[in-house]
Design a protein around this nucleic acid. Structure first.
Length: 774
RNA sequence: GCCCGGGUGGCGAAAUCGGCAGACGCAAAGGACUUAAAAUCCUUUUUCGCGCAAGCGGAGUGCGGGUUCAAGUCCCGCCCCGGGCACCA
């Protein structure tokens, strides 16, 4: 039933959520070796900003926050393996971040280039594509990001794009469908071809990417993105230059989906590589520099956008694909493009081929002739990791005027952040202003050189911390591969949906890089992923990075940690978003008091008791064990587990007077054990109070006795024509005919059946009777 | 536009494989205990109609159809809400 191989459970990324802790405690009671550790984020920017406001050192501030979080989690009673905790702002963690960076640099997986990057004015730093949400910074939802050209370090996640996409097929079993779908969407694979169109009277070639090379005979123009490097060469007059600049500025300002298509003829032409004719070269604002080659061939007859553009600018429309059983459209008069696959026409020797075959043969031809090749393009871009922040791991690179970018040698790692840095938030790394940090000599030639002043994205930290905490004190390697081989892949990862295309892609990438470095043998970090719902506060999601998290300390002080935990588990099933509304917290407090009262006042119970009451109490007990066990083993709907514990408690109150001392002891012991994963403090106290020793969550989980759980009689609803009319009680296994006659003997049933003809009788044994009458 | 979720009482929700809709809890109302309050305990609480009452009957899971003895659950067509991607060639 459990989706884990027996014996061990590695739970990753369990934050301050009661879900993972309840599961860990339960699995301990089932005898598993559970790794239930904790990694502490540096969570740079909020700390940096807060420190700035408070006039304190960011490092000091962050360490205080980590200490506070740790204390809070201890107050809440999380059964974390504290010996394995790590903090990602630890210098030793920096060392291994930097070590990985150098390894990647040496393999060409880390590179530096100038690019247009997303700049958040509020953060004062650039962001990766994954960190831009609706055109705004993921931390500042109302601050639009700007585009800035900057020198940046990138990690080549695109080298792994194909594998990251394909491996999603294997993750589908254990990962939520929507996360898999979001990642597929984000990686965005298109299969097609790249084709060169030589510019007429020039040495330049314009390379385009297309998924529909079968339509290439219908290409009546080339369109370049306004930012395309060739545009500057093709356009010579000032007015056109101005108009191109306007296009760039307008598209940066506006919502990309709603911008009107605008174009500009360059006055130049290119040669069509298949038929040798001349086609005009245009600049179009709807062509994206960042996708494919930044240039397209316009096939208006078979593409919606090209159609719109070409009709607006009077570029000819030439149809070259006809439907399987239809006529070729007339480009001059067609009202809309024909987008589907069909049969290629008017395309020289390829005429008559179906689209799919033409795509294969034409791209093979392009390759053979040397003017193109089959190609796969991904939507995902390389991961820009430079940040102009104080907080974060310094990028271990030294710029030497002679040797260029030189990695810091391994024995000089870690490069640590200087202390006493003035944080301005003005868009340059604060480290630049610290000469002792910046000025070094080149490790290769000794010439005076400068350090890289940017720090790494803190998503680097979270990409592999769950490896490090398996072996947190290792000072000769990031971790011992043998330890990892035991614990990995993670059996159960628990995290928020907000990281579906951030952390959960980065950490998959990082795992594959470490595998290729020979450090780990698993291909994926986590087999099973559970995404718990967001906690909302008046409609907006609470998150650590936004700093709008409710501090549980107030509730803990008033009701205690157990009530607090029960409240979060009981409010809704864990995958569902939950609005933080404390009104129902009283109910959890009452429930714990009722359990406490019941157990403590029955400790010294003596006597024989009433057999019927005892049987009913034990029956409810074993039904509850079945229910709670089932919830743990399948779907973690702890709201219903807790509801069933409440039902059990209500039943015990009902039969309390009649319980014998033996039965009272039995029900109390098992109630405490079942409460332990959810309310550990209360359970532990009651465990000791009832004369036991040791940690309650190391006790074996209660076993179900199916005989005791069984009801004496089956309660069978009787329907007439599908409407409920009566109930009857009968022993389990009563034959269908007997049930039928019992049902017909009931007065309430008679009232609806008499005078009518019984057409059909449906009997579901022990479950239901339905009489169909006419 | 494309891809995921979701829509059940005043509220959070339950109904796990097509078989009694509303478990459990909150809030509310009434009662017991109390000088009083808190705490605790008990009762009522989907809705409409009939009845003094125990009760009886009808309707009801976003809307409209369908399949079935039986639909919150399955199928078809819509509406609304949330999330992701979006001029991706």
């Amino acid at each position: 039933m459990l989706p884990y191989p027996s014996g061990k459970l590695h739970m990753g990324h369990v934050r301050n959520y009661a879900i993972g802790d309840a599961l860990a405690r339960y699995m301990w009671m089932r005898g598993f070796n559970v790794l239930h550790p904790m990694g502490w984020d540096a969570f740079g920017l909020p700390a940096e900003n807060a420190a700035l406001k408070a006039g304190r050192e960011p490092r000091e501030w962050t360490l205080t926050n980590i200490a506070h979080m740790k204390a809070q989690m201890q107050r809440l009673g999380f059964a974390i393996d504290w010996n394995r905790e790590i903090a990602t702002c630890d210098p030793e963690y920096y060392r291994w971040n930097q070590w990985f960076f150098v390894k990647m640099f040496e393999r060409g997986l880390a590179y530096r280039k100038e690019a247009l990057l997303n700049w958040c004015p509020e953060c004062g730093t650039v962001l990766a594509n994954e960190q831009v949400v609706n055109g705004c910074c993921w931390r500042h939802e109302t601050t639009p990001v700007e585009q800035r050209a900057m020198q940046q370090w990138f990690l080549k996640i695109t080298d792994y794009a194909g594998e990251l996409l394909d491996a999603l097929n294997d993750l589908e079993n254990g990962w939520p469908e929507r996360v898999v779908a979001m990642q597929r969407n984000w990686i965005g694979r298109s299969e097609g071809a790249e084709v060169d169109f030589p510019a007429t009277n020039s040495d330049e070639k314009i390379r385009v990417f297309t998924t529909r090379i079968d339509t290439i005979y219908g290409a009546t123009a080339l369109i370049l993105a306004p930012e395309h490097p060739l545009v500057a060469q093709l356009i010579t007059d000032d007015e056109s230059r101005l108009r191109v600049k306007e296009m760039i500025d307008a598209s940066a300002r506006q919502d990309p989906g709603s911008v009107e298509k605008v174009g500009l003829f360059t006055g130049k032409h290119a040669t069509h590589p298949f038929h040798g004719g001349q086609i005009p070269i245009w600049v179009g604002n709807f062509v994206l520099l960042g996708y494919g080659t930044g240039a397209i061939m316009a096939v208006p007859a078979h593409d919606e956008r090209d159609f719109e553009f070409c009709r607006a600018y009077g570029i000819p429309v030439v149809a070259v694909i006809r439907p399987q059983d239809g006529e070729l459209g007339d480009g001059a008069t067609m009202a809309e493009p024909f987008l589907e696959y069909g049969i290629v026409e008017n395309s020289g020797e390829w005429s008559g081929l179906p689209s799919a075959e033409a795509r294969r043969k034409m791209s093979a031809y392009a390759k053979a002739q040397g003017f193109g090749e089959p190609s796969i393009t991904y939507r995902i871009k390389d991961w820009g990791i430079s940040r102009q922040r104080y907080w974060g791991t310094p990028i271990p690179i030294i710029y030497c005027p002679k040797c260029g970018a030189v990695p810091v040698p391994e024995q000089d790692l870690p490069v640590l952040l200087p202390q006493n840095v003035k944080i301005t938030g003005k868009g340059r790394s604060p480290l630049e202003a610290v000469p002792e940090f910046m000025n070094v000599s080149c490790p290769q030639c000794g010439t005076a050189a400068k350090r890289e002043s940017d720090t790494m994205d803190t998503f680097i930290d979270s990409s592999w911390y769950f490896y490090r905490y398996c072996d947190p004190h290792n000072n000769t390697a990031p971790f011992d591969s043998n330890v990892i081989a035991y614990w990995f892949p993670i059996d159960q990862y628990i995290g928020g949906i907000t990281h579906a295309i951030l952390h959960l892609i980065y950490s998959r990438f990082w795992t594959k890089v470490m595998r290729d470095l020979g450090l780990v043998s698993n291909n994926e970090p986590a087999k099973n992923l559970f995404t718990q719902g967001m906690v909302l506060m008046g409609g907006t999601a609470m998150s650590k990075s936004k700093g709008n998290v409710v501090d549980p300390d107030v509730m803990v002080a008033r009701y205690g940690a157990d009530t607090c935990r029960l409240y979060t588990l009981f409010a809704a099933p864990p995958e569902k978003d939950m609005d933080w509304n404390e009104s129902s917290v009283d109910g959890q407090f009452r429930f714990l008091k009722r359990v406490y009262t019941f157990v403590t006042r029955n400790l010294d119970r003596a006597g024989e008791g009433d057999a019927d009451a005892g049987r009913k109490a034990l029956r409810k007990l074993h039904q509850t064990i079945r229910k709670v066990t089932n919830d743990f083993d399948s779907r973690w709907h702890f709201n219903t587990s807790i509801a069933s514990l409440m039902e059990l408690t209500n039943t015990l109150y009902q039969y309390e007077a009649g319980l014998s001392c033996v039965v009272a002891r039995e029900v109390c012991t098992n109630l405490i054990l079942m409460l332990a994963p959810f309310a550990p403090y209360t359970a532990q106290e009651l465990w000791i109070a009832s004369g036991n020793n040791g940690p309650v969550f190391r006790q074996p989980w209660p076993a179900i006795d199916p005989e005791l759980a069984k009801e004496d009689l089956a309660e069978i609803p009787v329907q007439v024509n599908g409407k409920l009319r009566a109930h009857l009680q009968a022993p389990f296994g009563t034959p269908n005919e007997d049930l039928q006659s019992l049902a017909l003997s009931l007065d309430k049933v008679k009232a609806f059946v008499d005078g009518k003809q019984i057409v059909k009788v449906i009997v579901v044994p022990d479950k239901l009777i339905n009489l169909v009458v006419k």
